[in-house]
């Protein structure tokens, strides 16, 4: 009885870094090999725990960027460096291939997309809030799902776009996937509109009409998420179909 109860608890595991990809100057992806990884749903996250020599521990949640199929048992985390962060600078600047990271998961069943959900999907990401949304785009592809997907991706400058090449390739190759960028500080040469934050016009033009009853996922900093959700509701979208995830910055 006691043993059964113990074994159901979520255990901390050790993942080994097997690959590192620089996504932008401040964001990188860690590929982790996690033995006995049970698999995950697109949008789930893991908790990472660092322990200092004196026993002090810091724990943070990071979204999983990769889709999952069995095997291999790898998990990808895409992490943005926060200059005053306790954990992220270690993951973005210090960790090398071969290092081990303590983690637990996958966790979180609310901000997830399953390929069995049939409605069109609207993904709205601010900055590194794109990470769990990318897992959904990758899962759609892996599952050969055909639900129409639209990503509206708000980012400071073209240099800050995460997964830029992969997004271009997927939009070209995968029917039913569109991406619209919103540049908040500097737009690329020849971009039709000046830099701006996401607004009602953006969501009205590039989102799905409310009557499509899309599944909508919004992820980014708190103010971004709240503004976006408010606009969607004002445009007539059903609040019950809008799922949000806020990530901590400063």
């Amino acid at each position: 009885m006691t043993q059964a109860a113990v074994s159901r608890r979520l255990n901390w595991r050790i993942g080994t870094v097997t690959g590192i990809r620089a996504e932008t100057p401040s964001i990188r992806t860690l590929v982790l090999d996690v033995p006995d990884w049970p698999g995950h749903l697109a949008g789930q996250h893991i908790d990472v725990r660092l322990t200092a020599p004196d026993g002090y521990q810091a724990q943070r949640s990071y979204s999983i960027g990769s889709a999952w199929s069995s095997p291999p048992g790898t998990v990808e985390l895409t992490v943005q460096r926060l200059d005053d962060g306790e954990v992220s600078p270690y993951l973005t600047d210090t960790v090398e291939v071969g290092d081990q990271v303590e983690l637990r998961g996958p966790v979180g069943g609310w901000f997830v997309w399953r390929e069995t959900q049939t409605p069109p999907v609207l993904l709205i990401g601010g900055g590194s809030g794109v990470v769990p949304l990318m897992a959904m785009i990758r899962q759609r592809s892996l599952a050969k799902a055909t639900q129409p997907f639209r990503l509206i991706y708000s980012v400071r400058t073209p240099e800050d776009v995460c997964y830029a090449q992969e997004l271009r390739d997927r939009v070209r190759d995968e029917a039913g996937l569109d991406v619209r960028f919103v540049y908040t500080r500097k737009a690329p040469e020849g971009w039709a509109e000046p830099p701006k934050r996401i607004d009602a016009a953006t969501l009205n033009t590039y989102g799905w009409p409310p009557e499509f009853m899309a599944e909508t996922f919004v992820c980014g900093p708190t103010s971004f998420v709240e503004t976006t959700a408010d606009i969607l509701i004002a445009l007539g979208h059903d609040a019950r179909r809008i799922r949000t995830e806020r990530f901590g910055g400063k």
Binding site: L10, H45, Q59, S61, G105, G108, W110, E245, R246, G248
Partner: peptide, 15 residues
């Protein structure tokens, strides 16, 4: 102040 949301509680509540 860092502000997240209940999604970030998943691991601690699962435990």
């Amino acid at each position: 102040m860092n502000m997240l949301d209940g999604n970030a509680l998943a691991g601690d509540l699962d435990d």
